[in-house]
Amino acid sequence: MVTVLAGRLDVKTRAFSVEEVPTPRPGPGEALVKVEAAGVCLSDVHLIDGTLTPLYLSGDTVTLGHEVAGVVAEPGAGVTRWRPGQRVLLQAGEERDGVVWTRGVDYDGGWAEYAVATGSTLVEIPDELPFEQAAIIPDAVSTPWAAITATARTEPARPAGVWGAGGLGVHGVQLLRLVGAAPIIAVDPLPEARERALAFGADLVFPPDDPELPARVRGETGGAGLAFAFDFAGVPAVREQAVRCLGPGGRLVLVGLTDQPLTITDGTAFSYFQQQVLGHYGSSDEHVVQLVELVRRHRLDFSRSVSGVLPLAEAREAVDRLLRKEGNPVRLILRP
C-alpha cells in the first residue's frame, strides 16, 4: 500500500500527529490534488485544544487544514473541467445536504501530501500567484473580504475601525484600503501588530487600553464616529469599546468568535442612533473567486502575509508558534 504524510487529529482525545496514511483516491466528481501549500489558522489551533469541535465529522479522526493550494494530480470519474497539472486552490468548505461542511474540520483537509476535493470546490489560480499566497485566500483573506463587502456593505470615503490586527484583521485593513474606506483606524495591544497595520494601510493605530480611544476616534472623524467597525479579536471588551466608537447608523461586524455575551451599556443611545451589530462567519465561494481575480488584475498582493514556511512534518511546531504568537505571524504555511 502506498502511503503519504498527513496531519491527523483525534477529536475525542485531541491527540495530533503527522503520520503515514493511505494515499487518498478521488471518487466520481472529485479530483486528487497534490498539495503545495497549506495555511495554519487559529481555528486549527482551537480544534487541537478542544475549543472547536466538528459538527458533521464521520468518525473520530480528521486531516486538518482548510487553507490549501496545489496542483491537480488526477481527476475522478465524470470530472471534465480539471486536468493534471492545473494550479488550483481549494475552497474552505462545501454545501452538503443543505448545510456547509468545512474542509479540515468536517472532512479531511490539506495538511497532507495529497487531498481529495469535489471538482466544484477547485478554483484555478494564475501562474504568477505563489502557492503559499494562494493557500491563504480561502479564510484568511476571504473572511474579512466577505465581512467588509457583504455583511457590512462598506462604502468608500467613510471611516472604519479594525480591532485585532492578526491574521484576519491585518487583511481587513488591506481590503478596507482597497474599497476606499477612510480613515482606517486599527486597534491592537501589540506594538508590532500596530506597526504592521500601518504597513498594510491603516491611517491611524491605537492600543485598546487608551482611555481616550472613543474621543480620539471621534476627533479623527470630525466628530462623526465610525461608520463601520470590525471585531476580528472575538473579545467581549473589544466589542463594547467598538460600540462606543460608532457614529449614527454605525455597524459593528462580529468576525472573531467567542461564546461570551455582548453587552451594550447604553441601549437607549444605541437605539436612538440606529446602530447595528451584525454577526459574520466565513465567506462564500464567490468571494474567493473575486479575490483571485483581483490578484490576477494586480489589485492585491499577499507577499507580506506569509510569515514563515515549515515542512509538513513540523506541523506541531507551526501550531505551537501560532499559539505563542512567536514572531507575531500573519500566516504560517506548511509545505509537504
Rank of each mutant, 00 (worst) to 15 (best):
R304K: 14
P75F: 10
T3I: 00
T151E: 12
L246T: 14
T23F: 13
L312C: 07
A146D: 15
P191H: 09
G110A: 14
R83K: 15
V217H: 06
R239L: 02
W163A: 13
L176S: 04
A165T: 15
V255T: 11
R177L: 00
L278W: 02
I125P: 04
A318T: 08
A77I: 12
A69L: 05
D60G: 03
R96T: 11
D139W: 07
A229Q: 12
A147R: 08
F270L: 04
L278Q: 07
E113C: 10
A115S: 15
P189Y: 10
R316V: 09
G110N: 14
L322S: 02
R324I: 00
A157H: 10
D108M: 14
P144W: 06
L178K: 04
A15W: 01
D106M: 13
G172F: 04
E195H: 02
V116W: 10
D259N: 13
L42A: 13
A77D: 14
S305M: 06
D49N: 15
D301V: 10
I333A: 03
A73M: 10
G65W: 09
T61I: 00
Q91P: 00
A31T: 04
V21W: 12
D49T: 13
Y107S: 07
V277K: 03
V330E: 03
A313F: 01
P183H: 00
G104E: 14
L55A: 13
V2M: 05
D139F: 07
D301Q: 06
G172N: 02
V99S: 01
V309Q: 09
R158F: 09
A182M: 08
E128N: 10
A135T: 12
P75L: 01
G65V: 11
E30A: 09
V99R: 07
A197I: 02
H298K: 15
D49S: 11
R296D: 10
A233T: 15
W101G: 02
A193E: 05
C245I: 05
D320W: 07
E240F: 02
V21K: 13
V255A: 07
V187Y: 04
T23L: 15
L254V: 11
